[in-house]
């Protein structure tokens, strides 16, 4: 499995993204990390070029709905709708269902334990 961990938008908090990236790597997953402040389009292009199975978006600014929608649309428009998208960050409980309805496969709001996140990535059907 190959994963792109990405930081979309303007938010500069990367603790969670880097922790998840390290945990996935230790679990034997190939991980690419984008660095901060990538546009949805840059993330879509990186996901396609790196030929990843999953994109993990980390958003702590509150702009997760807009950014997730942009990335999902971009993947679909580029014929890469099979790449699964996972979102983590400060996601209020009320937004979890909305993200799922957009097509986000799993949502990890604040407070999710690390082993649960790793397990979910590994269990994603290919």
């Amino acid at each position: 499995m190959k994963v792109l961990i990405a930081k979309p938008g303007l938010d500069g908090h990367d603790r969670g993204a880097k922790v998840v990236a390290q945990a996935l790597r230790d679990a034997g997953v190939e991980v690419v990390y984008t660095g901060l402040k990538r546009t949805p389009d840059e993330i879509v292009q990186a996901a396609i070029q790196e030929d990843v199975d999953v994109v993990g978006l980390s958003v702590l600014s509150g702009a997760h709905l807009l950014l997730a929608r942009r990335v999902l649309d971009g993947l679909r428009d580029n014929g890469a709708g099979d790449i699964a998208v996972i979102v983590g960050g400060t996601i209020p409980p009320r937004d979890v269902d909305e993200l799922r309805a957009l097509g986000v496969r799993r949502v990890f709001p604040m407070g999710t334990q690390l082993p649960e996140i790793v397990k979910a990535f590994k269990e994603l059907p290919g």
Partner: peptide
């Protein structure tokens, strides 16, 4: 700093 964050998370887990 990222390495320490990961170690911390493991110690929580």
């Amino acid at each position: 700093v990222a390495r320490q964050a990961y170690l911390f998370e493991q110690r929580i887990a």
